[in-house]
Amino acid sequence: MSVMEYPATQHQHFAVFPIAAFNDNYIWCIQPESSDQVWVVDPGDAAPVIAALTQKKLRLAGILITHHHRDHTGGIDALLRHFGKQTPVYGPDNTAIHGISHPLTKQGDYRLTAGHTTLSLQLYAVPGHTLDHIAYLIDDALFCGDTLFCAGCGRLFEGSAEQLYQSLQKIAQLPQDTKIYPAHEYTLSNLKFAAMAEPDNQALASFTEQAKQLRQQQRPTLPSSVARELAINPFLHCDDARLAPILSQHWQTAADSAVTRLKLLRQWKDNC
């Protein structure tokens, strides 16, 4: 099985490259500098991971999971069979996820060691899309699963609009140069909806052209950044009352709070 290779994004102590899976998933690989080992985030499918690491002559150090959905967890068992049952799997403390060897129960700082690699990270609880959702901040790279997408956010499958609002605020308050690594290539669809919600957003229009060119070249639109999302993502603009008129017009109801605006935006996107 050959795997399309994408350019890696360089950080101070590691590089990050994606492995494409299913129709639009990215399994992010974190490769510490001077190491032939990688950590993978949300391996929904083992086959492309095994193929990519074999092709690159890399070994699997560990696995990070953000939430319980199968397109993020489905490859755990096969990866453990292939690379060894001793491979550590970190993720939410949720018995619905088979294979978690190191459940993470609290927000805060962690130092994860596997093989000859170590990851120092900050863990964030970001419920909304699911109740168990967590995100990993490693230096200036945030691996946020399905909580925040480029120009969008995850559906409210389990949590409330209030929970998702608070989770998005945690991300919005990170340094603006933080790179954002969501788990899906939903960017063009999200940009189309964002333009409906914010038709006068010039930053949004400009980035849309850039994103279209990237996809025409079969290149990822990711990673994004906190600065970009603050400029183009309507789901991070819910504190701005300028969203209220278009939401009120669409839904024929008042959009008089940030949480209400987020809820109405998400419902609108769900029905598009």
Rank of each mutant, 00 (worst) to 15 (best):
M1W: 13
S2F: 10
S2P: 15
M4A: 11
P7V: 08
P7Y: 07
A8K: 07
T9D: 04
Q10L: 14
Q12W: 10
F14K: 09
F14T: 11
A15C: 08
A20V: 05
D24V: 11
Y26T: 07
I30E: 05
S35H: 08
S35Y: 08
Q37D: 08
W39Y: 05
V40T: 13
G44N: 06
A46M: 00
V49S: 03
T54C: 03
K56C: 06
R59G: 13
H68D: 05
H69P: 03
H72C: 07
G74P: 00
D77V: 14
L80E: 12
L80T: 13
F83V: 04
P88A: 02
V89T: 05
Y90N: 00
Y90T: 06
I97W: 08
I97N: 04
I100D: 04
H102M: 11
P103M: 08
P103W: 10
T105W: 11
L112H: 04
A114G: 07
H116M: 11
H116F: 12
Q122L: 13
L123F: 02
V126M: 09
P127H: 02
H133A: 15
H133M: 13
I134E: 11
I134F: 02
A135Y: 00
Y136C: 07
D139I: 10
C144P: 01
G145D: 01
F149S: 03
A151H: 04
F157D: 13
E162M: 09
Q163N: 06
Q163V: 03
S167L: 04
L168Q: 00
A172S: 14
Q173N: 15
L174S: 11
L174A: 11
L174Y: 12
D177Y: 12
I180L: 15
Y181N: 11
P182S: 11
P182G: 08
Y186L: 05
Y186G: 03
L191T: 14
K192Q: 14
A197T: 12
P199H: 11
L204N: 13
F207C: 01
F207T: 05
L214R: 08
R215Y: 06
Q217A: 09
S224W: 14
S225M: 03
R228C: 06
A231G: 08
D240Y: 01
D240G: 01
A241L: 06
I246S: 13
I246K: 12
Q249W: 10
W251T: 00
A255Y: 04
S257Q: 06
A258P: 05
K263L: 12
K263C: 10
L265R: 01
W268R: 13
